[in-house]
Structure formats: C-alpha cells, structure tokens
Design a protein around this nucleic acid. Structure first.
Lengths: 221, 221
DNA sequence: CAATACCTTACGGAAATCCGTATTTAAAGA
DNA sequence: TCTTTAAATACGGATTTCCGTAAGGTATTG
C-alpha cells in the first residue's frame, strides 16, 4: 500500500474524514494542507529530501480567504504537481460531478482517480486508493460515464460560461465583444443567442432570467 | 460534556470528520445517519427507550437519491425534531453562510448553534459543542452578523416576491397580471418596473438577470 | 467528389426591458 | 380643508432580447 500521501483540501472536517479513511488502510505517513500553495511546497520539499509523496488526494475548489495564493484551484495544483513530479499518482476528491470536468482532467493531466464527494464517498475513496495503488484507474460510479462517448444532454464549459456571464449582468452583445477579444469561438451575437436558446429548451427555462436561476439552483454556476 | 449525540449528514467523509472531532471531545455514544428520515426514527426510538439524544448536529442540504424520503432537507428534520423532542439541542453544520438563512433558523426553530463548513470548521464545531453544552448559543464568525439588527439595506417581502417571480421566469407583465388577480398593490406594470429599478440601484445590479443572481447569492430567494 | 448534416453567422421583425417624464392617487400634516 | 409629499400609474422612446429564416463554412460519409 502507499506509504506517503499528501491531502489538499480546504475544509477541516473533510480533511479529518480523509485522514481517518487513510488510517483505516494502514497509511500512516499523511500530510494535510489547506492551501494549494502549501501543497506545492510540500511536494518540492519531499522530492528534494528524496522522500517523495506517492499519492496526492486533492479537492478541486478551494475557498479564497485572506491568504493570497498563487494556485487557487485543485486544477492549478494538479498542473504544477505534474511538472514537479510527473510520476505522482493523483486522485481528485470533489463534489463536482460534471462529466465534462472529469473527462478534461483525465485527458489533460492523466489523473489516476476521480471520487465524488457523496453519500458513499468513504467507501469509494478507499476503493480508489487500492485500485490506483495497483496502477489501475478509478472513477466514482457517478462519473463512470465520463469515459463513454458524450451524451447529448451534457453542457460544456462554453455554455456554462455564457450563463455565468449573463448572471454577472453582461448583455449578450457585451459577451460577444468579450469573446471576440479573447478569440474564443463562436462569438457572434447570433451564435450566443442560439446557444442560449438551446439551453433554454434543454432546461425548460422560460427566458434568460429563468435559465440563470435554474443554473444557480443546479450549482452549475 | 454531552453523552449521546446524533449526526445527520449525507456525505460519508464529513460524517467521519465530525465523528473524529466528537471523539476528541470524549463523546463516545455517537450515531450517524445519512438520511433525515433515519434521523427521525432514531430520535423517536431513543426517546421511547428513555435514552434520548442530547444533541443533534445536522447538515442542511441532503442529496436526493433512489431512496424516497419524507424529509428532504435539514430544515425539515429540525422542524420534526423539535416536535418529537422540544428540549433537544441542535447545531446546524452547513456550507450555507447566508445570514438570512441563519436568522430564520434561529427565529423559527430556536437552534442552538450554526457552524459553517469552512477551512477552520473543526475548531468551530468543537467550540460550538462546548458552548451549546453550557446552554450558550454559538454562531460561526462567518455568520455572527445574523443576530445584528437588520440593516436598512434589507428589503421587504413585496420586493423579494417580485424578484422571486422573475427568477421563476415570469414576465413583468405576467407578474402584474398575477398581482391584480391576487388584489395585491401596487400591481401596475409601471410600478413593478419602478420597484425593480430601485432594487437594481440598491444592489448595484446591471439588469434584471444580475439582480436575480445577486438575490440568489445572498439567499434572499 | 458530391450529398449531408451540423455549426456559425447574418438579418429583420416582434416582444420585452429599460428609463425618463408626466399625471393621478393616496397619505400626512398644518 | 387645504397643502405638501410620496407613492402609484401612465406613456413614449431607446435598447435589448427573442425568434424565425437564410446564407456560408466545415466536417463526415458513402
């Protein structure tokens, strides 16, 4: 079993829960950090001391607070971790169950496991650690479909961003301007209208306000 | 210290974290449930066996799954718990940090503590348990302001309803129609526009979508 | 390579909103 | 009762969204 594990998770209580779960697996050398920046330091130091971590378990979202941080998300952390120590095994542990997100993490960073925070997450986390230790990949049942071909019900980040812009009060014309500046396509007003319209149909929203409201309720934005 | 505690929390890992925290307080008689309905049964049984729980620590939101539930939220659970056992101490443990929510829980159910899931939540939860044991109330620093007198920024129910209607996708003209049917005044389209406009200025919202978004973030709707 | 399917973009008219101004109504005070 | 003040309503024009149609571009497939 893994000997040395790093946990990056901002909530105290979740940290405790993960530690308890690891101890049940007889893993004793456990380090926990509440900030991604701390995780980077720990990874570097361990490597420098020739006692590298074997596994990183990380959350995706970290609440911002008074401490100014270089890396603000689990994704940032994963990116830098893979640079520091390419062989490091990584399991993501997050409430986020969007297939799109999972898929992109697998494709971009080649993460080894993805466990959703959920009713039976302790069991799944345990299983994930065991599987990853045996060089297998592990995905929570909730996101197993991530590797399947895309379903047409899925919303991609582009569409989520559109709704997010709306929720911040931008006009559709302003969104178009912004996307053009960022060279993100499609960016015509017409396309934005169309995408939003499709979303409205998919989510049975009566209008843009309703759509934003639904997205907020679903936690998509 | 409390002898017998019930924890209602759907996520495994958080459950483990809370249990670990309680054990550090030398509380040994701990029951955890993942569904509100189970919590109700446990409370009733304990009372019937003349070994009632002294403290309930409950989350507010519970993910829905295949199991059909009578009580779907922590608030539902608190309501029924207070009926079953009015003397039960209750601490809410939630990520929700909306003052409006906290205030309403205190006023409606007279809960004893409210701890926000956050970076230092284990410490706060510990503190909350100790304080509540001494018959004091405890609120996380994040939501301490909930008990302060209402600021003049707070808005009346009429205005909140307007924004709520918007969030459900009603047109301003439809809202006007509805209010006329209900004989609620003011109900002219013009007045509705004006009220919404004042709200937009108060909350620095760029447009109606933004306003709804802000209201949702503040937990006003 | 042609047929097709799909996506982006463009355009125009209808509907809804935003916003300023003016008028009416209701409440409050002298 | 008469003024004063504030709120509710009415109205019009500008802006934005909504929605259908159509043209152009690109990738897929037989």
């Amino acid at each position: 079993m893994f000997k040395k594990v790093l946990i990056a998770e901002d909530f105290d209580i979740v940290n405790k829960g993960v530690v308890t779960t690891l101890k049940e697996l007889n893993i004793t050398n456990i380090t926990t950090v509440k900030y991604c920046d701390d995780a980077e330091l720990r990874l570097k130091k361990a490597l420098h001391d020739a006692e590298p971590f074997e596994l990183l378990i990380t959350d995706l979202s970290f609440n911002a607070d008074h401490r100014n941080q270089k890396y603000v998300s689990g994704e940032d952390l994963i990116a830098i971790a893979k640079v520091i120590q390419p062989t490091l095994k990584i399991i993501v542990f997050s409430v986020d169950d969007r297939l799109q997100k999972v898929r992109s993490l697998i494709q971009t960073y080649n993460i080894n496991g993805y466990v959703c925070k959920d009713r039976y997450d302790a069991k799944e986390l345990t299983k994930a650690i065991e599987e990853v230790y045996q060089n297998k990949a592990y995905l929570s049942t909730k996101v197993k479909l991530a590797l399947e071909p895309k379903s047409n019900l899925e919303i991609d980040d582009y569409d989520i961003d559109l709704v997010k812009f709306l929720s911040k009060g931008l006009l559709q014309s302003e969104i178009s301007e912004y996307l053009k500046k960022q060279k993100i396509y499609p960016n015509s007003l017409s396309s934005i209208e169309k995408h939003l319209n499709i979303l409205k149909i998919q989510f049975k929203a009566k209008n843009a306000i309703h759509l934003v409201s639904i997205f907020k309720d679903l936690g998509l934005i």
